[in-house]
């Protein structure tokens, strides 16, 4: 037999990639041949549509800085924005567990409404199913999103080239640690709120700044490390980072030191990386910093030409180490 689904298959790492390549892509095919991207691009007459889907299974449902509701709307908005599209409409399919308190449902739905209003997008259709108690963990949300790709915009890993600057929109690791603190099993409290936020306004400002944008990607499961390894492999380039340039908040660093995590692999929900030609780096950086969600954006590395694709990071001591994708989600360490 081919074994069973493991948690690792959902961790944003190499096992998830393996599942996609060995089971999903052969079945669903990849007609556009577009590299696996946050959104599929569909040509409808003269308009290029971006179409995406995502599921949200976060536990607990509520955490500092957001809830499954704000996560679902922002996550969908962000996937559309990463292909250079501006989001137009979202659908939301709710799967509710028998026994879920109705005020929790109300709170989640109002979070979705607020998030949609903030991002300037409408939830146009939805569906609700209920399953017996124990068959789901309170509530799951599946979304789909449609956006319109701006004219002349071609964004994706295929355009990443040696010489490009890598811009990171803010400090990393907030969401993963906020969830850990909300679960109160390993941490009792952490003063870090999730970075859950819509990125479409920052992307719009960037695209209107005149800077050439080669690739955009939001950093969700598997953290920045997994996203950069995926982009390096898809573009056949080598991404070299500088450790000192990568912002990590004090409490996220403290939580990672305590539990033995590496912040590079911790999930984010309101952060993205942008690949822009070196000549446009300053313009792009200045523009991105005017958006509230990316006020602390920084250039954290450059794209190089090496024989093999990959990612490496230069420590503050001038030494280099390679960064790899984990097979599943990161586990805490005592050693």
């Amino acid at each position: 037999n081919r074994g069973r689904v493991e948690m690792a298959h959902g961790g944003g790492g190499s096992k998830m990639q393996q599942l996609i390549e060995e089971i999903l892509l052969p079945a669903f095919g990849n007609p556009e041949g577009a590299a696996r991207h946050d959104s599929a691009l569909l040509q409808v007459e003269k308009i290029q549509l971006a179409f995406t889907t995502d599921s949200y299974v976060v536990r607990p449902l509520f955490f500092q800085g957001g809830s499954i509701g704000s996560l679902a709307v922002n996550g969908t908005v962000n996937d559309l924005s990463m292909s250079g599209a501006y989001p137009v409409a979202i659908s939301a399919g709710l799967i509710l567990e028998e026994g879920l308190p109705l005020e929790h449902l109300q709170a989640v739905v109002s979070d979705m409404q607020t998030a949609a209003r903030t991002a300037g997008v409408r939830i146009v259709t939805g569906d609700t199913k209920v399953v017996e108690r124990g068959r789901c963990d309170g509530m799951y949300i599946n979304t789909a999103g449609v956006g319109i790709v701006r004219d002349g915009v071609d964004i994706g890993p295929h355009r990443v080239q040696p010489g490009d600057a890598v811009i990171l929109s803010g400090d990393i690791g907030r969401h993963g640690i906020a969830i850990l603190a909300a679960r109160e099993d390993m941490l009792d409290y952490c003063d870090t709120a999730s970075d859950c936020a819509p990125l479409n306004s920052a992307v719009t400002i960037l695209l209107n700044s005149g800077a050439e944008v080669h690739c955009l990607r939001d950093l969700t499961r598997g953290g920045m490390a997994s996203v950069l390894v995926e982009i390096a492999q898809a573009s056949g380039t080598f991404i070299h980072l500088r450790e000192e340039a990568i912002p990590v908040s004090a409490s996220v660093r403290a939580a990672c030191e305590l539990l033995g995590y590496d912040p590079l692999y911790i999930a984010n929900e309101g952060r993205f990386v942008a690949f822009v030609p070196a000549a446009d780096a300053e313009t792009a950086l200045k523009a991105i910093r005017t958006a509230s969600v990316s006020g602390e954006a920084k250039i954290v590395g450059t794209v190089q030409k090496r024989e093999t694709a990959g990612v490496s990071i230069c420590s503050k001591y001038g030494t280099e180490r390679h960064i790899y994708m984990l097979s599943g989600e990161q586990l805490p360490r005592i050693c």
Binding site: L187, D188, Y189, C190, D191, S251, A254, A255, L258
Partner: peptide, 11 residues
């Protein structure tokens, strides 16, 4: 007791 590891608390 409660120990503060720098913005992170744990018993």
């Amino acid at each position: 007791g409660t120990v503060d590891f720098g913005g992170v608390l744990r018993e």
